[in-house]
Amino acid sequence: MTHEPELTSPVDLCRPDGRLNPAAVGWTRRPLHTANLRGWGRVKRWEYWGIVTPEHIVGIVVSSLDYAGVHGLYVLDRATGRETSTDAVVPFARGTVLPVRSGEGEVRARGNGLDIRISQSPDGSTIHAAGPGVRLDAEVPLPPGHESLGVVVPWSDSRFQYTVKDIGRPVHGTLGLHGRTYEVGGPDAFAALDHGRGKWPYSTTWNWAAGAGPGRAVQLGGRWTDGTGSTENALIVDGRLHKIGEELSWSYDRSNWLAPWHIGGERVDIRFHPFHEKAGRTNLGLVANETHQCFGRFSGWARTDDGTRTDLDGLVGWAEEARNRW
């Protein structure tokens, strides 16, 4: 078990010299960190939005990785398994806009036919993302009292990551896909945000799982936080976040990504049942990535802070493994 402090006041992520501010280490229920990162040195900034509907799964990424902006728009047709994706690599992240606070300001990226614009305010976010064959216009309101998980992971005072995982947000709008228009919304549609800012080690492997359904959501992470004293695990019930301060065990078959996964701990016993694998690989020598993101359904349970066992059967979302040299 970990013993991370809950932070309740605004704080800078870095000291004036660019190193980690010790007062920033902890977790939050709403974004309170200002990511005042400086200079180069494997500095990574990104916004990832995942949107799940009964018909489609959409992924949007805007990122600045020091030497490049790496952006993408992905759509899965759940009925047919057809994937539509466009990726862009922009040297030195030219034209990429990423704010220093989660939930505030503008996010923008362009390249290779992609146009991504996200406007953020205290009431929620507006997302516009367009690429060849795809156009998404969506509103993601922020309900009163809705909580998200913010965590600072400290490898050292020069290598650290601030992440906000905001799972189970309502979403509505339209998705244009290959000449057809689909309505986005309803009780079985949700959006999830991964906001990341930090200075990373060269080689890292992580696991991430997120799922949501009416009144319930779960956020689970692993491997990259091991041994740091921080975790990114939480259960959300009716908008209230219950921090799970333990390193969880992950079990899955790397030779068969569509086999069931198991994620367990004292407060968590979850199985994930994939129905689709999205695989991505790049290898540029010193820089390489391999990601297996599986979409599927969850079963099992997790416990709230007071020990109440919450049924997670039927939640929909994803689980992934990512290996990076960057």
Score class of each variant (00 low, 15 high):
E4N: 10
S9R: 12
C14D: 03
C14M: 07
R15L: 15
P16R: 01
P16V: 03
P16M: 00
G18Q: 08
L20A: 05
L20I: 08
A24C: 05
T28G: 05
H33K: 09
T34R: 15
L37N: 06
G39L: 03
W40F: 11
R42G: 00
K44F: 01
Y48A: 11
G50V: 06
I51L: 15
I51F: 08
E55R: 13
V58A: 01
G59V: 03
I60F: 03
I60G: 07
S63E: 10
S64I: 08
S64T: 09
D66A: 12
D66N: 14
D66V: 00
H71V: 09
L73C: 09
Y74Q: 12
Y74P: 04
L76M: 10
R78W: 05
T80H: 04
T84F: 13
S85A: 14
V90K: 04
V90R: 10
R94M: 14
G95F: 13
S102D: 14
S102K: 10
G105W: 09
V107W: 11
A109F: 04
G111C: 01
G113L: 05
P122M: 07
G124L: 00
G124E: 00
I127W: 13
H128K: 10
H128T: 13
H128E: 14
D137Y: 04
D137P: 01
A138C: 12
E139L: 12
E139Q: 14
P141V: 03
P141M: 00
P143R: 00
S148C: 15
V152S: 10
V152Q: 10
S158P: 03
F160I: 06
T163P: 02
G168F: 00
H172T: 04
H178S: 11
T181D: 08
T181I: 08
Y182H: 15
Y182F: 15
Y182G: 05
P187G: 08
F190E: 01
A191H: 02
L193N: 09
D194N: 06
H195D: 15
G196K: 00
T204H: 01
T205Y: 12
W206I: 02
W208Y: 14
A209K: 02
P214Y: 05
P214W: 06
A217P: 06
A217V: 08
A217G: 14
Q219P: 02
Q219G: 15
G221H: 01
G221P: 02
G221M: 05
G222S: 09
T225K: 01
G229R: 04
S230R: 03
T231A: 10
E232S: 11
E232W: 01
N233L: 02
N233S: 11
I244W: 01
I244H: 03
E247H: 12
R254K: 14
S255R: 14
L258G: 04
L258S: 08
H262Q: 15
G265T: 06
V268K: 03
V268C: 08
H276G: 06
R281M: 07
T282E: 04
V287D: 04
E290M: 09
H292P: 05
C294G: 00
F295Q: 10
F298D: 00
S299Y: 00
R303T: 09
R303E: 12
T310L: 09
L312A: 10
G314K: 08
W326E: 02
